[in-house]
């Protein structure tokens, strides 16, 4: 770091810090997806399609999640119904 750098504001993260932050987010996301079975994305789509047949909802108002504990898996479907 040069003498003149001391006058610069320290508010902005360095590009390496930015890289680390972006990586942590994407890697965590992809690890989560990796743990899920292969059929989950398609099943998610089909569940959403069935709900859509009856109720007008957006894609992002439905969340389908699979959580596994030691001896049982729980499939959780959350639908936010419009008012």
């Amino acid at each position: 770091m040069s003498f003149f750098d001391y006058f610069r504001s320290k508010a902005q993260p360095t590009s390496a810090e930015l890289a680390k932050e972006r990586l942590q987010i994407i890697v965590a996301h992809e690890r989560g997806a990796r743990a899920n079975p292969d059929y989950l994305p398609q099943m998610q789509q089909e569940i959403i399609a069935v709900i859509k047949k009856y109720i007008a909802i957006d894609q992002d108002q439905v969340s389908v999640q699979l959580d596994s504990n030691d001896d049982c898996s729980v499939l959780e479907v959350n639908v936010t119904l419009p008012d």
Binding site: M1, T14, S15, A16, E17, A19, K20, L23
Partner: peptide, 9 residues
Amino acid sequence: AGEMLSVSD
């Protein structure tokens, strides 16, 4: 210089 990910990163 903060331009590259470090070993610990």
